Amino acid sequence: MGHYPTKGTWQTCPACGRHVHHSQWGTYQQCPYCHYWRRLTAATRIEQLVDAGSFDAVSLTATTTNALQFPHYDEKLAKAAANAAGADEAVTIGWATFSAWPAMLIVMDSHFMMGTLNTTVARRIMAAIQLAEKRQVPVIIVTASGGARMQEGLYSLVGMNLILAELARLAAVPLPLITVLTDPTMGGVSASFAFKGDVILAEAGAKIGFAGARVIQQTMPVSLPVDFQTADSLLAHGQVDAVIERPQLRTTLIEILASYAYQGGPHHG
């Protein structure tokens, strides 16, 4: 039995099916054979984007409850927390700097119940936007979501409109909103705040859309293009401002923040 590799040493790439050693994925978690990007946890995403040691998480007392008594929801929440490296919900919010430029950072996590939007996630996003308004700093939202969370029904859908209302107040200040669409950005998240950014970036390789391709093909007997719902397709149709490779995301965000603050220079609210 000693000839078997240690568990977790090799993973199968979901895109090309090749076996990839954990050391081959690299810092940015990209398949060395087909260049597929693995999905990141919120913690890893934050580490890659912000100035080292600058992230200051904002903790809120609101926690997720099974208000509708949906069967097995509590067990799913516990399992999700384990999958998302201990995160207690599908979004993390906090202050951060990008080459000293300050921003409120909101990062969704697909490892927690596919990053689905529920009452707690909506409250945290709304609170983050409100705090940014008070401190007068830009907001960066990194989306990674399958849409609204079915276990909370209509409450999840209401969260979409509540966030949109808060973003309307942010726009009236005005303060810039930068959205970074990562894999996946689907359903109610793409239909609401994902495309509300003053600048909309898409991470290379991201799947972005509303309903999945299979659902569309079952509903409408149409033949979908090969690049359907890809970041590159959205760029070609003018729905995003740029498609950025993961290693360049941090630099791109720094350049955008600097362009918005070019008159006064960096400030720390």
Rank of each mutant, 00 (worst) to 15 (best):
F98G: 09
A144Q: 09
V142R: 03
G146T: 11
T97K: 04
A96G: 08
H111I: 00
A96W: 05
Q136W: 13
R123K: 03
R124Q: 07
G146I: 08
S110G: 01
R123F: 10
A132P: 02
V139G: 09
W101P: 01
T116S: 13
A100M: 13
S145C: 10
N118W: 03
G94D: 14
F112Q: 00
A96E: 11
N118Q: 10
M104L: 14
I93K: 02
A96T: 06
V142Q: 05
T143A: 09
I141T: 14
G115K: 02
M113V: 15
I106E: 15
R124E: 07
E133G: 03
A103G: 02
F112W: 13
T119Q: 06
W101C: 13
T119W: 00
N118S: 06
A122D: 03
T97P: 06
V121S: 02
T97R: 04
A100E: 13
F112N: 00
L131C: 14
K134D: 15
W95K: 05
A128L: 11
H111Y: 09
I106S: 08
A100R: 04
A144E: 03
M108E: 09
T97C: 05
N118G: 12
W101N: 06
M104V: 09
M108T: 01
M104I: 07
G146S: 11
A103Y: 12
A122W: 04
I140T: 08
G115P: 08
V142E: 12
V121W: 07
